[in-house]
Design a protein around this nucleic acid. Structure first.
Lengths: 326, 326
DNA sequence: GGGGGGTGGTTATACGTATAAGCATTGGAT
DNA sequence: ATCCAATGCTTATACGTATAACCACCCCCC
């Protein structure tokens, strides 16, 4: 079996005593083709026996486009939320006949260079972090015949449909909750890390949209910085910590400083990580519900591939999970 | 520019006033081809102007194999360690001229079905979770011309080189540390979750290889179960918690039960997650050092693709990070 | 008995690329 | 003047597939 070269549809045809065209018709179940059931069986049997595997490249060459959906994620550490989204999306796209593939390709590469790399595969669709897409890059993909180019991130990419994450809503929801709890010294943490800082700023905008004064504090994910920040608190503040990781960083620093939570300082995170339930006090957090996202995104992609039009869609809905830290 | 169909090497040839073969020679920098520097410049210029992007499928068809490296991960939640490994591997493979792609494709699919899906792309290499590879599946890949089939996981896959994670070492290192700290009631947590349970059992084997009695305790990642487990402790035990997540689960339960760490119970985790430094007391943990893995794995793949032989390799070295929980 | 329309296929072609083999031109060396 | 070798290309072909177009056959109906 591990003979010389991979079996082709021509090999299958010979083995089944039919023409190569017939093999193609049968194995692709092409509707409208008039092949008898017994011939179909013979072909399928031969294909199975020979271990025939179609050549995706040849098919792409012939049809002009592969059934590939390229997913190019942003250059940020991926937590369980993103992982779940990717898995769900894979399932949805698979069900619609696409093959999803994550293009690991050097995350820092963007613009035309990234677009050219993606375009080589002649994918049916590209779902990419908005920060990696540029107008010229989109043009390259278009020219390469990519039917669906979809952006993903916090801002709509001009000219193409985008999958948008409402970061402002996170900040707004968190701060509104802190205000409800009677806090008036509101602080919003803005992470210093390159990749996530834009989201931090967006969440800050949302925090400020509530109407109360919000003090912005830049912070790296570092115990020393956290300790210094906590040392400057006077007590009574409500802190929106950007996300659960930062919230846990702050909880540790507050503990070390002998400040009570929520007695002295209230803390709210975001993401509802499994680990965030294990803090003492238990962490109040904003939970992004991504359960509808895979189907939504898959539908957008499918519509675009079919040539229909499509607008922007949201990726999540937000819910505040009140626990003991506020 | 966004004309009708993507530009081909033939289009570039016409624009540059040369033959298509010349375009191929120039753009691939084929050594040994005798093309003048000025012609090269004309070709490159024309390619740039037309926004030429080569057709990977056509190239694959012609050459018999794509430069693709398919990575099919195991069906377990991926933390920062795995993420870092993937990114590093992408960089290493990219530097060697390969294009790495993560095949999200339905994680539960394995064996021949998975192999056929992978084989369609005629990748140069497949790096897959050992649990998803079967003998017949490997045969399918071989027959499809995949030069490098590499397993990854806790056990070597027969017949092919594997990238092995030493889980026994984790258990052994953790338990040895607990013994050094004077604990004699040693408990090893074995997670109940499907995907990670085999690793838990392997770590347990390692724990038992030390020579002292080790009590195995099955545990789901659940606060209730953790509380019940903790309630059964008599004090003085040393617990190897499988990993940092479980360790944090236990720390919370111990805290709730009023047990002191490490006074009453010592806890050691594994992974050295960023968050594990934030527990109070700070968590002692086994840190897997994966820094050498990307280069190692890329070398294995490259050797196999070139037709050279290769044996199994380890994926990490282990180090115990002693903090305050033991 | 000749035309019409299903049935069950076959033949032929094009997709875009890489590369072996060939061919014209030039610059010496003999 | 002639032959050789190097230079700088071009011509031709094959890779494996999908699909349009064609064809033989049989049956039925007027």
């Amino acid at each position: 079996m591990s003979g010389n070269r991979p079996a082709t549809s021509m090999d299958v045809a010979r083995a089944a005593g039919v023409s190569q065209a017939t093999v193609s018709y049968v194995l692709n179940d092409r509707p409208g083709s008039r092949i008898s059931e017994e011939t179909r069986a013979r072909v399928r049997d031969a294909a199975e026996r020979l271990g025939y595997v179609p050549h995706a490249g040849a098919r792409t060459l012939r049809t002009g486009s592969s059934g590939l959906v390229l997913v190019a994620l942003p250059d940020i550490p991926q937590g369980p939320l993103a992982t779940g989204l990717i898995e769900g999306l894979d399932k949805e796209l698979g069900g619609r006949g696409y093959t999803m593939v994550q293009y690991g390709g050097a995350r820092h590469v963007k613009g035309v260079a990234a677009a050219k790399a993606w375009a080589e595969l002649r994918p049916a669709a590209v779902l990419a972090d908005g920060a990696r897409l540029t107008g010229a890059g989109i043009e390259v993909l278009r020219a390469a015949g990519v039917k669906a180019v979809v952006g993903m991130g916090l801002k709509a990419v001009p000219g193409i449909p985008s999958v948008l994450a409402d970061h402002e809503g996170v900040g707004a929801l968190a701060v509104r909750h802190l205000v409800d709890r009677g806090r008036d010294g509101i602080v919003a943490i803005v992470p210093r890390e390159e990749g996530i800082r834009p989201m931090g700023l967006e969440r800050l905008r949302g925090a400020r949209s509530v109407g109360v004064p919000v003090k912005a504090v830049d912070l790296a994910f570092d115990e020393g910085e956290a300790a210094a920040f906590v040392a400057g608190l006077s007590g009574g503040e409500g802190v929106f910590a950007y996300n659960d990781d930062y919230a846990m960083l702050l909880l540790a620093a507050l503990h070390d400083a002998g400040l009570g939570v929520p007695g002295d300082v209230a803390v709210v995170g975001c993401d509802d990580l499994p680990l965030s339930r294990l803090t003492r006090p238990r962490l109040t957090t904003v939970r992004p519900d991504l359960s509808a996202a895979p189907a939504t995104i898959a539908t957008v992609i499918d519509r675009l591939v079919r040539g229909e039009s499509c607008g922007d869609v949201g990726i999540w809905t937000l819910e505040l999970i009140g626990r003991d830290s506020t």
